[in-house]
Amino acid sequence: MHKSVALAACTAALFTVQAAPAAWADRTNTTSPTKEAKGGKNGRTITVQTKVQTSVNGDTRSARTGNLSSADSNWTPPACWYEPAFSPKEIEKTVKAWRGFGDGVPLFEGVGEFVGDYLDNRYKKGKPYKDYNLDKQGKGMFWAAAINPNRKDDPEASACDKQPFWVDEAETPKEPLAVTPEVLAEYAYDELPVPSTEITMAPQGTTKVNLPTWVWLDKAKFKKVSVTASIPGSGLSATTTAEPVSLSIAPGTEDAETYPASGECPIEDHRIGVPRAKGTPADTDPPCGVKYLRSSGDGSYDLQATVTWKISWTSTTTEGGRLPEGRFGADQQVEVEEIQSINR
């Protein structure tokens, strides 16, 4: 293996393997596990497993969940960022460990020393850091690129292509892609668990031409849900909250009418639509529903039900704000048949 090729492969692996330094191992929270993040420009970017942790504060235990998609097609959560990754001692320890890599293996013989020399040149010999910044132990961290595990295949994931760089404690990096509360809030957007949008209809099963079909969703599921994203020990955190605001109905055919006419059923007191009470006349218009004007024949119509969620975020260290509305929906097959009449 050519040493320059080995360098690219090994240095990329180097910091990925060391993605969760021991210094952070005992800083726990009620969170989901950290996720492995790999990738980078031409496969050579040094990346780390993100230490961002998330906790869900909403009541979604009984709900099947999905992830929101942005209503703004021009906006997506960040694909990568830079975050605190290594202490000076962790950099030093890792470089020393790599000097033994490849010993006794013909294909990799000498690669460890080559990688070690490269890293020492950068982090020990003053180009640009001296002695791994050991004199600053406890006074800052080396920040490294981390890739959003939900978006590791996005082209934007290659934007964080800088080598790990030093940031003094309590200082804000001048790097535009450095993690901030707002970046954490946008990441939390990707982690929001929202309930499934499987609607209930009356009449159940096959519906009839020219008779209203009532539509509603389980009131208990549609409440605010919040996700807090944080980097333990850094003082950086943000909470993103999703609140349901409306249900959109698309009947799956132009031969239909919706209630209301806009097809947008507002959410009031966590309620989306109203269950049809027993004894309600069949031709009564529902507050939320659909009326098919033509039979579906031997097939069915693909009714789409989509809930729109209003998204906001807050932080204890900076002013929060709004993020683009999110949407999550589901399709249901609806069979529609003609009303049978009996002639006497």
Rank of each mutant, 00 (worst) to 15 (best):
K224E: 15
A220K: 02
L211Y: 09
V215S: 01
K219D: 05
T228S: 13
F222K: 00
S226P: 04
A229M: 12
A229P: 04
P232G: 15
L211K: 15
L211D: 05
W214E: 06
K221V: 02
T207A: 07
A202Q: 03
V215R: 02
W216Y: 03
W214V: 07
P232I: 15
A229G: 13
T228V: 12
K208Y: 04
V215D: 00
G205Y: 05
K224I: 05
W214S: 12
A202T: 12
W214D: 08
I231M: 14
T207L: 04
F222L: 01
V225W: 08
V209S: 08
T206N: 10
K221Q: 04
T206C: 05
T206I: 11
T213N: 04
T207N: 08
K208R: 14
K219A: 12
T213Q: 05
K221N: 05
A202L: 09
T228I: 12
W214A: 13
M201P: 05
P212Y: 01
G205S: 14
K219V: 05
V225F: 06
W214R: 09
S230Y: 10
D218L: 02
S230E: 14
A220W: 00
S226M: 11
S226D: 10
V227H: 11
K223G: 07
G205V: 09
V215K: 02
V209L: 05
V225A: 11
P232M: 15
A220Q: 00
G205F: 02
L217P: 02
S230F: 10
V209W: 07
T207Y: 03
S230G: 09
P212E: 12
S230M: 15
T207M: 10
S234A: 13
A229C: 08
A220R: 01
V227F: 11
L211C: 02
A202K: 06
N210R: 13
G233K: 13
F222W: 10
L217V: 01
K223R: 11
K221T: 03
K223H: 12
Q204I: 09
P232S: 15
T228C: 13
V227R: 10
T213S: 08
D218M: 03
A229D: 07
M201T: 14
V215P: 04
K208C: 02
S226F: 07
K221G: 00
K223M: 06
S234Q: 15
L211M: 07
S234I: 06
W214Q: 10
S234R: 13
V215H: 00
G233E: 15
T206S: 08
I231P: 10
K219I: 06
V215G: 03
K208T: 14
S234M: 11
A202R: 00
M201E: 00
K223D: 12
L217D: 01
V227I: 13
G233M: 09
P232Q: 15
I231Q: 14
M201H: 03
D218T: 01
P212G: 11
Q204T: 14
T206P: 03
N210M: 06
S226I: 13
A202M: 07
G205T: 12
G233Y: 10
K224T: 11
M201W: 04
G205P: 07
V227G: 06
K221S: 04
T228R: 09
V215L: 09
P232V: 14
L217G: 06
A229Q: 10
Q204R: 10
W216S: 01
T206G: 07
Q204E: 15
T228K: 12
P203A: 03
T228A: 12
A229F: 07
W216Q: 00
K224H: 07
